[in-house]
Amino acid sequence: MSRALLRSVLELRAPSCRALPRIAPFQQIQPRCAFNTTAPIVEPISPIHHPNNAANPTGSQVRPIAFKKSHPAEPPAPIPDSVKTLLPLLAAQPGHYITVHIHGFPYLVQEGDQIRLPFKMPGVLPGDVLRLNRASVIGSRDYTMKGAPSIDERVFECRATVLGTESEPMRIKVKTKRRQRRKRQAKSKHRYTILRISELNIKNLDEIEASS
């Protein structure tokens, strides 16, 4: 029993001489999947100058492509004596329309249309005929005549008949002020004038010359 205890004590004091496990040398691990490589993109060192890209365009050089002209082609030349040439064609076509101005408000109407003015026209009665002599556009299906800013009143005749006046229901708005018990009622009842375009004619050159 004593020999066994002595042997165990000696083994504890002496360094262990057990053989370490043998480790295999490092081996290169082969990848399970490989990636396809593409050729690198090489940018040109100096930009290629296009012959049409002139830095400072002159008479012999062309304007750069990056800059576009606002009018690549010259606008068409105006038709000489367009009023004398196209006015008979405009007058011959049916279905004329006109943009008349009444107290600064433009209205696009045809013959037979009704206009509800946003105010009550003073000095008119139902049945009165008004001559509308301010217009900016007159046209038909294929032709349009524009004024700068208005068309000569000798070119057309536009008359409107007063049908009457309309009124909206009475509106009452209660107005109050902060920290005051007093209340004030504001009543409003707007009235409107109703017109009907009874006549719309476009004159010919002979009628214009005769009237002038």
Rank of each mutant, 00 (worst) to 15 (best):
E209K: 09
L90S: 05
E209R: 08
P57S: 04
K173S: 07
L5N: 04
K177E: 14
P106D: 02
T161V: 07
R63Q: 09
A66Q: 11
S198T: 14
T193E: 02
R141S: 14
I23S: 09
Q28S: 15
I41D: 05
L87T: 07
G123Q: 07
R116F: 08
N204K: 05
V62Y: 09
N52H: 12
P106M: 03
R141D: 10
I41K: 07
A77D: 04
R191A: 12
P88F: 00
R159I: 02
M1L: 11
E207L: 04
L125H: 06
L108P: 05
V42E: 08
R154W: 03
F67K: 12
H50L: 13
R134I: 15
L12V: 08
Q114C: 15
R32D: 15
P122A: 09
P149H: 02
P80S: 05
I138H: 01
L163I: 02
D113F: 13
Y143R: 00
V155H: 06
N53Y: 06
V42F: 06
A77K: 10
I41Y: 08
N204W: 01
S46Y: 13
R3D: 08
E168Q: 04
N133A: 13
P72S: 00
L132G: 04
R22G: 11
E153I: 06
Q93W: 04
L12G: 07
I45H: 10
I98S: 03
P47W: 04
N36W: 09
K183C: 05
M145D: 01
V9N: 06
P80H: 05
R131Y: 10
Q185S: 14
A19P: 08
P122T: 06
F119N: 07
P64N: 15
A19V: 14
H49T: 13
K175D: 09
H49M: 11
S212A: 08
C17K: 15
L163T: 00
I79A: 05
S211P: 00
N56H: 14
P80E: 03
K189L: 10
A91Y: 06
P94Q: 02
L132Q: 03
L132S: 04
E199R: 12
L12Y: 08
S150D: 14
S16E: 09
I151Y: 02
N204S: 11
S82K: 06
S198L: 03
I48S: 11
V62G: 07
S2E: 07
I138N: 02
S167C: 05
K175V: 15
T58Q: 06
S211L: 10
Q28T: 15
L205C: 03
A55D: 11
I45S: 12
Y97R: 14
K175R: 13
T85A: 14
P126R: 01
D206S: 12
K175A: 12
A55N: 09
A160W: 01
D81K: 08
Q180L: 13
S2Y: 04
P64M: 11
H71C: 06
P51Y: 09
H49R: 15
V129P: 00
Q28Y: 11
P76F: 02
K177S: 15
I23H: 06
T161A: 03
T85V: 14
K189N: 12
Q110H: 11
A73R: 08
F35D: 13
L12Q: 12
E74Q: 05
R134A: 13
P75Y: 00
C17H: 15
L163N: 00
L5Q: 06
F35I: 12
G164L: 02
A210Q: 08
Y143Q: 00
L87M: 12
R3N: 10
K203L: 10
L163F: 00
A73L: 10
